[in-house]
Simulated scan of single mutants.
Amino acid sequence: MTKKNHDADVAFIKALAELLRENDLTELQVKRDYSDDDSLNVRVSRHVQQQVVAQVAAPAPAAVAAQAAPAAAPADAAPNDDPANDPGAVTSPMVGTVYMQAEPGADPFISVGKTVAEGDTLLIVEAMKTMNHIPAPRAGTIKRILVEDGAAVEFGTPLVILA
């Protein structure tokens, strides 16, 4: 690749990153073909913190008084039950659709309690008609499966908890 192509590619990637930011996108993938044996395949992604806003009708005055004295949390309750914070969480590396088995009707790759080795396929995330096998980052036992077959996931979505 020539210096001219390199400079143009860097400018192209910067422009993609700007498009990502301006349009509030989480991921963008583009392939440029220069010739039969020369191409550029770029995927630009960013982590976006999602903010959930819930609208709740104002409670009656009696309900407000009942809420004023919150009950103590049970001693065995986890202080933060967010699966993304679990040290065994395996997250999605891309935006796509989750498949739990290689093809419809086949046995799922994993189930709760199953032991997996490092590199074993946990599930598939389809992105842009490409089936991406998500490997186990380490050996362990499947503690929780956090997604359902056919579910849409974002970049960074917790998929599985490994113990």
Rank of each mutant, 00 (worst) to 15 (best):
2 T>A: 09
3 K>E: 14
3 K>Y: 14
4 K>P: 06
7 D>C: 12
8 A>T: 11
9 D>I: 14
10 V>K: 15
10 V>R: 14
12 F>A: 12
13 I>N: 06
14 K>Q: 15
16 L>K: 09
18 E>N: 15
23 N>Q: 10
24 D>W: 04
25 L>V: 05
26 T>Q: 13
27 E>Q: 11
28 L>E: 06
30 V>Y: 06
30 V>I: 12
30 V>H: 13
34 Y>G: 07
38 D>N: 11
39 S>D: 10
41 N>A: 13
43 R>A: 08
43 R>F: 06
43 R>W: 01
46 R>E: 09
47 H>R: 13
47 H>V: 15
48 V>M: 11
49 Q>T: 14
51 Q>V: 14
52 V>Q: 12
53 V>M: 10
55 Q>H: 15
56 V>K: 14
56 V>Q: 13
56 V>M: 11
57 A>S: 13
57 A>M: 12
57 A>V: 15
58 A>D: 14
59 P>A: 08
61 P>E: 09
62 A>F: 14
62 A>L: 14
64 V>T: 14
65 A>N: 10
65 A>F: 10
68 A>G: 09
70 P>V: 03
72 A>L: 11
72 A>P: 02
72 A>H: 08
75 A>H: 10
78 A>F: 08
80 N>V: 14
80 N>T: 12
82 D>F: 02
85 N>P: 05
86 D>Q: 05
86 D>Y: 05
88 G>F: 00
89 A>N: 00
90 V>L: 06
90 V>I: 04
91 T>D: 02
91 T>L: 06
92 S>F: 03
92 S>G: 07
94 M>Q: 04
96 G>R: 01
96 G>W: 03
97 T>E: 08
97 T>W: 07
98 V>W: 03
101 Q>Y: 03
102 A>H: 11
106 A>H: 05
108 P>E: 02
111 S>K: 13
112 V>T: 09
113 G>W: 00
116 V>M: 01
117 A>G: 11
118 E>H: 09
118 E>D: 04
119 G>W: 04
119 G>M: 00
121 T>C: 02
122 L>K: 03
122 L>Y: 01
123 L>G: 00
123 L>S: 01
124 I>E: 01
125 V>Y: 05
126 E>S: 05
127 A>S: 06
130 T>I: 11
133 H>P: 04
134 I>Q: 01
139 A>G: 03
139 A>Q: 03
140 G>K: 01
140 G>T: 01
142 I>W: 00
142 I>C: 03
142 I>Y: 02
143 K>S: 11
145 I>L: 03
147 V>E: 02
148 E>D: 14
148 E>P: 04
150 G>A: 08
150 G>V: 06
152 A>Y: 12
154 E>N: 15
154 E>S: 15
155 F>E: 06
156 G>A: 09
158 P>T: 02
159 L>N: 01
161 I>G: 02
161 I>L: 07
163 A>F: 03
